[in-house]
Amino acid sequence: MDWLPLYISAKLALITTIILMMLGTPAAWFLAFTRFKGKLLCEALITLPLVLPPTVLGFYLLTIMGPKGFLGQWWRCLVHEPLVFTFSGIVFASIAYSLPFAIMPMKAVFTKIDRRLLESAFVLGLSRTAAFFRVVLPNTVGGIVSSAILVFVHTLGEFGVILMVGGSIPGQTKVVSIAIFEAVEALRYRDAGLMSITLLIICYAVLIMVNLLTEKRQGDARS
């Protein structure tokens, strides 16, 4: 059996998770504590990939990431390479697709933090950034890790968006879910079964981890 698609999926999931955590944490923090005009629209836009069919999202991503799209042109200027049907392209697509899984759970965790803890930190002389790292982060780390795990596992199982933006180039954009689909089409059920069970075990283990973290968090909150 070819393990390369699983490696590509894991690499894609890891890179997407790291980037989304770096971008999503300040964005979630901003959404949790700031009121601004159009906040509702902004949040709905972030949540859109949750409800939009992956092919629709993939189509629009293909349009903006293609040779005539602004993202595609910008990328070409930057690295002199096309964005669609490349690994970088599916990273961009995954970021857009998993954005709500990163931001919305983290926003929920930040919203729940006792505002008085923050006020206490401010009065004790901490800047907003210092208060985030010394007070907010240690008290929300469980929620942040849960959201990172969700992003990872969600990216691991991506299919429609990747197929639209990346196609199925072995070693580049052929992720495990596409490999399973192709194996079934070619009647290679053994390969499809092996890849599926591997993915199932990984996802199941990860969800148990998320549940354990959530339970621990709720236990901490109760005590």
Binding site: R116, E119, S120, A121, F122, V123, L124, V135, P138, D220
Partner: peptide, 29 residues
């Protein structure tokens, strides 16, 4: 801003940082 007023403020209900020990809380500032 409150950070520049160099105040002490004891709130109505306990606002010790839950992730720190009593000593670490007092040593916070």
């Amino acid at each position: 801003p409150p950070q520049k007023r160099h105040l002490g403020y004891v709130f109505q209900d306990y606002t010790l940082f839950p992730h720190l020990t009593v000593y670490q809380n007092v040593a916070f500032a």
